[in-house]
C-alpha cells in the first residue's frame, strides 16, 4: 500500500510541475503586453521598456518561468497583479477560502442528494417517482448554469422573498448570513453534480441488482431493503468515487459563472476578470491553484480506490 501511495504522490507532483509549465506557456500566447497594461494611459515607450526590464519580461521565456516557479516554491510568491500591483499571493489567499466555502458545500450537497436521488430512482425503477426524477435529472444536465441561477433569483428572491438576491458573507464572519446568502449559489452549483451522480448511481444500482449474487440473495428470501443496502449499494458506489473526483472540476467551472452572477469574491471571478483584463500573473496563479486542487482531489480518489479495491493496488505493481 505504501508503495502504491508513494508512486501516486510522485506522479501527482510531476503532473503539477508540467501543469505549471503549460500554464506559463499558455499565458505567453495571450495577446497584449503586460507592461502596456500595467502602465496604462499615456505610457511612453521608454517607461514600458523600463518596466519590462525591471520585471524581467525581456528574458527568455524559460528563464521567466524558472523565476516564477522558484518564487512560488521557495517564497510562496505568485508575483504582482499587472493591473493594480496587488500581491497575487494575498489576493488568492483571500479569494480561495470564499470559493471553497461555496464549492465544498456544493460538492457535498450534490453528492448526497445525487446518491439519494439515484438510489430512490433505482429502487422505484419504472415507477412514477423514478420517471419524474429521471426527467428532472435530464433537465438539470441540460440547463446552462447561468439560466438556473437567474431564474432562481427571479423566483426565489424576487417573487417569494426566500433568499437575498446576491452578495456574500464569509461563514467565519457571520454564519447565519452566510447560510442565507450562499444557499442558492450552492444549490445551483450542486445541481449538475446531483444530476450526474443520480444518473450514475441509478444505472450502477440497476446493473448490480441484475447480477447473480443479488438474485441469489433474493432467492434466499432476504428482504429487498437488506439486499439494496447490504449488497447492491456497496458495490454500486465504488465507481461513483471516480465521478466525485471529476465533479471537483465541475464545481470550479461552475464557480466562474456563479461567482459572476452572485458577485461572490472567489477565485473564479478573479480568474474571469484576469482573463478579460489580461492580468497575466493573476490568470497564471489562478489556473495553477485550481489545477493543483484538482490533482490533489484525484490523488485522494486514487488512494481511496487503493483502499477500497485491492485489485487496483495489485495492478499498479
Amino acid at each position: 500500500m505504501t508503495g502504491y501511495i508513494v508512486k501516486k504522490v510522485l506522479t501527482a507532483i510531476g503532473l503539477v510541475i508540467l501543469i505549471s509549465l503549460f500554464t506559463f506557456l499558455l499565458m505567453q500566447l495571450l495577446p497584449g503586453d503586460p507592461a502596456r497594461i500595467a502602465l496604462g494611459d499615456g505610457a511612453s515607450e521608454e517607461r514600458i521598456q523600463e518596466y519590462r526590464d525591471s520585471y524581467g519580461l525581456n528574458d527568455p521565456v524559460l528563464v521567466q518561468y524558472w523565476r516564477w516557479i522558484t518564487n512560488i516554491i521557495f517564497h510562496g510568491d505568485f508575483g504582482k497583479s499587472v493591473l493594480n500591483s496587488r500581491d497575487v499571493t494575498s489576493y488568492i489567499h483571500t479569494r480561495l477560502p470564499n470559493s471553497i466555502s461555496i464549492g465544498l458545500p456544493g460538492l457535498i450537497f450534490g453528492v448526497l442528494v445525487g446518491l439519494f436521488v439515484g438510489i430512490v430512482s433505482a429502487v422505484k425503477r419504472g415507477g412514477w417517482l423514478d420517471q419524474v426524477l429521471t426527467v428532472l435529472v435530464n433537465l438539470f444536465l441540460a440547463t446552462p448554469r447561468f439560466l438556473t441561477a437567474i431564474f432562481g433569483v427571479i423566483i426565489l428572491a424576487l417573487n417569494l422573498h426566500l433568499i437575498p438576491l446576491q452578495g456574500y458573507t464569509a461563514p467565519w464572519d457571520d454564519f447565519g448570513d452566510y447560510v442565507s446568502k450562499a444557499f442558492w449559489p450552492v444549490v445551483v452549483n450542486a445541481i449538475y453534480t446531483v444530476a450526474i451522480l443520480a444518473r450514475q448511481t441509478r444505472s450502477n444500482m440497476l446493473e448490480v441488482i441484475s447480477q447473480d449474487y443479488v438474485r441469489t440473495a433474493r432467492a434466499y428470501g432476504l428482504s429487498e431493503r437488506k439486499i439494496i443496502f447490504r449488497y447492491a449499494l456497496k458495490n454500486a458506489l465504488i465507481p461513483v468515487i471516480t465521478i466525485i473526483g471529476l465533479q471537483m472540476q465541475n464545481i470550479v467551472a461552475g464557480a466562474v459563472i456563479i461567482e459572476n452572477v452572485f458577485n461572490i469574491p472567489g477565485i473564479g471571478q478573479m480568474l474571469l476578470n484576469g482573463i478579460m483584463q489580461r492580468d497575466y500573473f493573476i490568470v497564471q496563479a489562478c489556473v495553477l491553484v485550481i489545477s493543483v486542487m484538482t490533482v490533489f482531489c484525484n490523488l485522494m480518489v486514487d488512494i481511496a480506490y487503493g483502499f477500497i479495491d485491492p485489485r487496483v493496488r495489485r495492478s499498479m505493481r
Binding site: 472540476q249 465541475n250 480568474l271 490533482v295
Partner: peptide, 9 residues
C-alpha cells in the same frame, strides 16, 4: 495536464 485544468477555464 489539460484534464487537470477545468474544461470551462
Amino acid at each position: 495536464v489539460i484534464l487537470s485544468i477545468p474544461n470551462m477555464v
